[in-house]
């Protein structure tokens, strides 16, 4: 409630604000308007075709392919490798990457490619849990905060502010310290650390859409608030949240692997990407592939998520 009041107070009471609003709305012939004026219809059309074009970019196609392959690794690793990730052939230890062992082998002769493929399941599972927690809890908090407003909003947002002020990794470390070790606990820790930014974005979007004149117009047309929420607010605020969620997949992969690298995830010999890199650390001087290649896989997946997130936000921004 307080937000509506502030906004309308600003509209009437503050010359600066209404002047700016007026300048945006009231002068179609102003400099900027005149500048974009002739190009405006084509700009609008471009937003539509631009979204299609954006999805046809080679970088984006590559990103989707990378994700499909990695999801395949996670779901049915045996389609991609028939080698057992846990038993090694001691005679073949420290074999550099080659035709027999794409990613080479480790100190006990285990195939690193097989370990990376089998590790995808655990790593992605942790990532999905983390993003799900962050998105579900964060979005709920943000939407309630933005829609209910008043004291609820104040209290929730102060809590979110504090969570945002604590660096995510530090928050995760505290949770791990309290809960103990293991991939699932690491995932929960990473998820909790991501809640605050989802809450922020969700609240911002709800407020933006909620204060949009078309939402007031819907109320003024006699639409009840559940209808307004379902038909106007949610669809119009979903875009940035979806794009943040995609971005958060990348962030979560980084955080999960960092925490397992620090030794809080699964115990060896379970293959998990952060653990693989941590294991390879002892052979940096002799077997470069043990750290380099699993790391490159992580980088590829993170970049793929980021690229798709960018496309999604361009697409939802263009549609608006």
């Amino acid at each position: 409630m307080s937000d509506i009041v502030t906004v309308s107070a600003a509209e009437e009471g503050n010359v600066g604000a209404s002047g700016a609003a007026g300048a945006a709305g009231a002068e179609p012939t102003r400099g900027t308007g005149g500048r974009s004026g002739p190009a405006e219809p084509s700009l609008r059309r471009r937003a539509g075709s631009g979204a299609v074009a954006a999805f046809l970019r080679p970088g984006l196609i590559l990103s989707v392919l990378v994700l499909l392959v990695v999801i395949g690794w996670a779901l049915v690793p045996t389609w991609f490798t028939s080698v057992d990730p846990l038993t090694g052939v001691p005679a073949e230890k420290f074999t550099p990457p080659g035709a027999a062992h794409w990613f080479g082998t480790d100190e006990t002769g285990r195939d690193l490619y097989a370990r990376t493929v089998h590790g995808a399941g655990l790593s992605l599972q942790a990532t999905v849990i983390a993003v799900a927690i962050a998105m579900f809890v964060g979005t709920t908090i943000g939407m309630v905060s933005g829609f209910v407003g008043g004291v609820v909003d104040d209290v929730l947002m102060r809590v979110v502010d504090v969570l945002l002020a604590i660096p995510g990794l530090l928050l995760s470390l505290m949770i791990v310290a309290a809960l103990g070790f293991g991939t699932t606990k690491v995932a929960i820790a990473v998820g909790v650390a991501g809640i605050a930014s989802f809450a922020r974005v969700a609240r911002g979007e709800v407020l933006r859409v909620r204060n949009a004149p078309y939402v007031e117009a819907a109320f003024a047309s006699g639409v009840r608030w559940p209808g307004v929420l379902a038909r106007h607010v949610l669809p119009n605020s979903a875009g940035p949240l979806v794009s943040l969620a995609t971005l958060d997949f990348g962030t979560a992969i980084l955080s999960v692997s960092a925490l397992s690298f620090l030794g809080y995830g699964e115990m060896p010999p379970t293959p998990e990407w952060g653990v693989l890199i941590s294991d390879g650390r002892n052979y940096l001087a002799s077997a470069w592939w043990l750290t380099t290649l699993p790391g490159l896989v992580i980088v590829a997946v993170v970049l793929a998520f980021n690229r798709i997130s960018r496309a999604l936000s361009a697409w939802s921004g263009g549609e608006r």
């Binding site: 004149p213 078309y214 939402v215 117009a217 819907a218 003024a220 047309s221 006699g222 549609e319 608006r320």
Partner: peptide, 22 residues
Amino acid sequence: LRQLRASVQVVYQNPYASLDPR
């Protein structure tokens, strides 16, 4: 109040913002 809305309607200043883009 909702029933009253049927007899009182509003047209807003900025037609770029008062229509849901979707």
